[in-house]
């Protein structure tokens, strides 16, 4: 009898696990925007790997810092060499979960407001963050977006005094990913 119960339990777990579906992209987008009275600075990275597990709500993002592209070459150089220090800290990552996964119906088209909580690793510093986002279900396709702000000093990114008026202390990050099924 115990063996049968164990078998039923295993089948139950297996069936539940079968509902989980992995989605991924290797060409997602993260951009940032810094605005001061002196100037606006934008940069984008379109080589973001993101994996989403619709069963558990786990979601992760990773990118190479040197793949951010700026309008001005000098800004790109300063970003890589002085601020984000890409040679020393080549990657930025986020690992977290969708806190309100139950509110998302992956089998019904719609735009769902989500909250994602997890750890952002940037410039060698890991911080817990919780950010709002949107998950769009349309047919078989799934996409995610989020706009949130971070403070550069939280991640030990030092802005030299000479350009303090040009770079905002708080920068806005925009994330956009369109997923395909694994």
């Amino acid at each position: 009898m115990k063996k049968i119960k164990a078998l039923v339990f295993l089948l139950f777990v297996f069936c539940l696990g079968g509902k989980a579906q992995l989605y991924f992209t290797k060409n997602g987008s993260v951009s940032f925007f810094s605005s001061t009275p002196m100037e606006d600075i934008r940069a984008g990275n379109n080589q973001v790997i993101s994996i989403l597990n619709t069963g558990s709500g786990e979601i992760q993002f990773s990118l190479l810092n040197n793949a951010f592209h700026f309008k001005k070459a000098l800004m790109e150089e300063h970003f890589n060499e002085e601020y984000i220090e890409s040679a020393q800290y080549p990657k930025s990552t986020f690992k977290g979960t969708i806190s309100n996964l139950k509110e998302v119906n992956f089998s019904k088209d719609g735009i769902y407001n989500i909250t994602v909580s997890g750890s952002l690793n940037l410039h060698g510093v890991t911080k817990s963050i919780s950010v709002p986002g949107k998950l769009t279900v349309k047919g078989n396709s799934l996409s995610a977006s989020s706009v949130f702000k971070i403070r550069t000093k939280d991640y030990n990114i030092k802005i030299p005094a000479a350009v303090k008026n040009n770079i905002a202390e708080t920068v806005e990050l925009t994330v956009n990913c369109s997923y395909e099924k694994k």
Binding site: L22, F24, K26, Q47, I49, I51, N53, Q60, S62, L63, L64, K91, K182
Partner: peptide
């Protein structure tokens, strides 16, 4: 950039 070995990516 690595994917995720556990997820086979």
């Amino acid at each position: 950039m690595g994917g995720d070995a556990d997820m086979g990516l």
